[in-house]
Design a binder for these strands. Sequence first.
DNA 1: CGAGCGATTGAAAAGACTCAACCACCGTGG
DNA 2: CCACGGTGGTTGAGTCTTTTCAATCGCTCG
Lengths: 238, 238
Amino acid sequence: MFIFAENSAMLDKSHKYVSCETCQVRKDSLFSSFCTEEVHQLDENKVCSFYRKNQPLFVEGTFSRGVYCINDGKVKIFTIGESGKEQIIHIAKEGDVVGFKAMFSDDPYKLSATTLEESNICFIKKEDFLSHLESNPGLLQTVLKELSKELGERAVFIKNMAQKSVRERLATILLILDGVYKDEMINLSREDLANFVGTATETIIRLLKEFKEEQLIEIHVRKIEILDRKKLLREAGS
Amino acid sequence: MFIFAENSAMLDKSHKYVSCETCQVRKDSLFSSFCTEEVHQLDENKVCSFYRKNQPLFVEGTFSRGVYCINDGKVKIFTIGESGKEQIIHIAKEGDVVGFKAMFSDDPYKLSATTLEESNICFIKKEDFLSHLESNPGLLQTVLKELSKELGERAVFIKNMAQKSVRERLATILLILDGVYKDEMINLSREDLANFVGTATETIIRLLKEFKEEQLIEIHVRKIEILDRKKLLREAGS
DNA sequence: CGAGCGATTGAAAAGACTCAACCACCGTGG
DNA sequence: CCACGGTGGTTGAGTCTTTTCAATCGCTCG
């Protein structure tokens, strides 16, 4: 059923204007602390857009004009290496607010963001976001917390990259993705997976096959189903 | 002359109480925007301590009680992997303020900090720091900027770990250390170097030998002198 | 003087990468 | 309706970097 969902109209997405008042994901977002009045202001000034798969939100080297609030869909955050190879740093999902880190310095984006699937994403102008930040101590608190959380996550990421084998890293990343994709199955190209794990796509394919043979995962063409989280965690070596 | 400095009294350090008013490194620190009154307050409440080599400032898993302002010395920031191996994330130097990231969440430290050499370090209590943060928008600005800068640095670090060879990574790290140690020579154990580069100490030794043979560096027992920054940058592949 | 730690070297083994070829699926256009 | 081209996925084989393990060395400290 999962497997064929893609072929049905069930999961088709299209442009829809989402009001912040009724937005289901807002309560988990940076803006969870907003009062009715603030939500209304947010709603007035945002711009809600539909993105197809593989459309960029922003590109490293350019300057921030505002933040992106993901209402629905997934976005990869990555940077490009010398050789042109992407390194994915993070996958953002519904409820995540993306691109606000670059707003606190006058430096250009150090990362790029591109949709991984069809997505509905709202844009909030830099000045609006900053003015909310000034007037709402709760938002500031949340932002500081988020920044510090991400710093911690990246330290762990660095450690994983530095100390774990590719096999362990793949297991780790699959578990992270399991959290991102929640009730859906993981749906990433082999190349994106490789660019997240930091390895070659061939290696990813071979290791996925191993995991499949060991009954840790099931592969449905492009989608990956986690069968045994406990064993996978053991494989991840942490 | 450099080489023998260690044996003379010239570089010996000892405890000294540094007044924030006259502190030479404050102007480059988080507290650069402070007015006379604020500097005075800072001075009143800080505690200045002398640390020998290899003393911890804080340990991952414990809770933050305040921030550490390095007046003199170097501090490694690291996390411990499953196998017990350290992964160094950052080396902090004079003027750096360390440990304030953990203060914005209620989570324990995710990183540890330990001195790499004899150091003079001031401690500012959490409540004092936070109260300055509330009353001084300039400090908040600086903190946000710093957080976003570090997030960017860690993304680059991840990319380097994921995409570069050990040799390239060593070159990269040597250049970073060159910036940290400025006019001094790099002075780290092979093991610390390995834990920064993310490799085995034997590999570090072999690669340092190669770099030495290629006239990129000179090795004075434990200290490393950079001879050719341009070539090293080329080796670093960026 | 002996213990012990950090640095060094050598040799063998393993993990991962590269390259090249091939396959499978999908949408297009004739 | 089918051949075509393109993209993404898969496989195999050979190569190379890096790791691991074991042994040695040199220096410092008690």
